[in-house]
Nucleic acid binder design. Structure first.
Lengths: 166, 166
DNA sequence: AACGAGAATGAGACTCAATCTCATTTGTGT
DNA sequence: ACACAAATGAGATTGAGTCTCATTCTCGTT
């Protein structure tokens, strides 16, 4: 029932396949470090290690996940949270909240071509990512009408995944 | 910066005004108690007090909010969480997660005419409820296409509210 | 109305993510 | 190399949420 599995689905409207591999990992790490430098920050080992870890994973990670992934490297809790705060403030990562009281974070997409949301299966706990142009369009139109300048949005579906429906 | 203010907005497409008053409060409390009874549960003072509190508020409440609202009445923490679990399981309340690590709950709408989502202002912390038929339609089409049986969904917009844009 | 099985309750211990403090280490410009 | 500022980490602290278990209450039965 823990979200330890991850899938990615792309809802096709018309075009071809859409890959969700970690091909963008390295460019993201570089872009992140560059953005941080330009924002006037010194470099630091803890933050660098965290960027390294996050660049290697496609799926949303919790802080405990990160601490485990860091393993060898001794990175203090406080530094992890500080780094996440900075990365989030610079829109380099996105916060994902699936409702279990644990914040998760994942790389923000450089091209907003790859923007996506999540479904959580109530039964097996699987976390499935998906993206849907039609949904994005509805959200953009909506925030315009509301006069709300939305810098971020998050959509979470909860229910039974295809496997658990059987 | 705390979500202590609440507004409700309805995005009109065609029809007339839509009220978001607590007119439905009493029917909801009755329906809730009836549903619980039919589900085979005995009645209990703590749960009843909680239903009373929740029926009087339109906006999403956190557990600390509820404990404060209960004030006089001595309701144990455990009973509050148990009652919420039961109410949620019976779809009588909806869980709202605005990303501050505190779960909030609000009455589920009896008619799904009044289903809504939330915007959180990053600056002043105001929590604004809205509903949009177009967004709902996009989500329903989406979950059909995904083969995901979504019993619940949640949309959260983050950014600057109309007031804070100035 | 008294009885008893099972449900509901509450005090408080406990877990764990997240925050805060502050002394120490590291990075950077001079 | 020097000095100041930024980054780091160990550990204390907070606070939401969970768990346990003894007690109280409900409700059908007698």
């Amino acid at each position: 029932m823990e979200p330890n599995q991850h899938l990615h689905i792309h809802v096709e409207q018309d075009s071809g396949a859409h890959s969700h591999t970690s091909a963008d990992a390295l460019p993201w790490a570089d872009a992140a470090r560059e953005t941080i430098r330009r924002a006037g920050h010194s470099k630091g080992a803890a933050r660098d290690a965290l960027i390294e870890i996050m660049s290697q994973r496609d799926c949303a990670m919790s802080v405990p996940d990160m601490e485990q992934a860091l393993g060898e490297r001794p990175v203090g809790r406080a530094s992890v949270y500080r780094a996440l705060e900075l990365l989030h403030g610079l829109h380099l990562i996105t916060r994902v909240d699936i409702g279990d009281g644990v914040a998760r974070y994942e790389r923000a997409q450089l091209d907003d071509d790859d923007h996506h949301h999540h479904m959580v299966c109530d039964r097996c706990g699987v976390l499935i990512a998906f993206d849907d142009p039609e949904l994005e369009a509805a959200i953009h139109k909506l925030s315009d009408r509301l006069g709300f300048e939305a810098t971020e949005h998050e959509v979470t579906l909860r229910g039974a995944c295809p496997d658990c429906r059987n």
